[in-house]
């Protein structure tokens, strides 16, 4: 028996919104410690890794570890019926072929339940090597979304370079070029949400497809902050930590100059 209840049910909705662009179906691996998901996009260029801790739920019970294969676009449709302040309960039997969603309004005056068929999905688990990233930038999640959306007007590929002057996002296309530089502002009186922290061991300059970064940025409603971790010739890690709940991380393979 698996049962998980979350007062802030909206978090589940936001998590699925942040995944469904990249992943159409995935296994939610449930165990006594929580829920994990690892899935790649169809081009095998990016990987999403979700972690939701059992302690992050108001109630969490999982008698047997198992994968729950779910079509994310179906799940997103079901979650459209979940209102902002609803309490969400997920349930699945150990040998069942479905998952049950229950949405309760805060005042308990409306209760909806939905059942979704589970799917058998071959999961491709990747061993992600521990990386000592040479540069880590932590900034406002909404500001990062803004940069990705704004720069995509000009081109498809963004060069991210971290140097002593800050982190520069550059795009060039047929129309022209664009650069946005964000500087470390930890020494000034910037309010917490707008802080930019740059931790750099050595300068890094890598190129990435903006299309994927824009999809990752859909996770911004989950939390205020995002971290970008870079090292030469390794995938970029874009990490959204969700306080007291878990994290949503994305990996993106770099582009190389051919």
């Amino acid at each position: 028996m698996f049962e998980a209840r979350l007062t802030k049910g909206e978090l589940i909705k936001k998590v699925i919104e942040a995944l469904k662009d990249l992943v159409t179906e995935a296994n939610f691996d449930i165990s006594a410690t929580g829920i994990q998901l690892q899935a790649m996009d169809s081009s095998h260029v990016s990987l999403c890794a979700l972690q939701m801790k059992a302690e992050g739920f108001d109630h969490f019970r999982c008698d047997r570890s198992m994968p729950l294969g779910i079509n994310l676009s179906s799940m997103s449709k079901v979650l459209k019926c979940c209102n902002k302040d609803d309490i969400v309960t997920l349930k699945a039997e150990d040998d069942g072929d479905s998952i049950n969603f229950m949405f309760e309004s805060k005042d308990q005056d409306k209760i909806s339940d939905f059942e979704l068929k589970l799917m058998d999905i071959d999961s491709e688990h990747f061993g992600i090597p521990d990386t000592d990233y040479k540069a880590t930038v932590t900034m406002s999640a909404s500001e990062f979304t803004r940069i990705c959306n704004d720069l995509s007007i000009l081109g498809e590929t963004v060069a991210i370079s971290v140097g002593k002057d800050g982190v520069r996002f550059s795009v060039s296309g047929e129309m022209g070029t664009g650069n946005m530089t964000v500087r470390d502002n930890t020494s000034s009186d910037t309010k917490e949400a707008d802080r930019v922290e740059i931790d750099m061991e050595e300068p890094v300059n890598l190129n990435f497809a903006l299309r994927y970064l824009k999809s990752f940025a859909k996770a911004a409603p989950l939390t205020d902050r995002v971290s970008l971790c870079l090292s030469r010739d390794v995938p970029l890690l874009v990490k959204y930590e969700i306080p007291e709940f878990g994290s949503l991380s994305y990996y993106l393979a770099p582009k190389i100059d051919d």
């Binding site: 990016s46 990987l47 090597p129 590929t157 582009k255 190389i256 100059d257 051919d258």
Partner: peptide, 14 residues
């Protein structure tokens, strides 16, 4: 011209 690499070039199948 930019060549998009795949993740399998960096991560191992677990």
């Amino acid at each position: 011209y930019w060549l998009q690499r795949q993740l399998s070039a960096f991560f191992n199948d677990a």
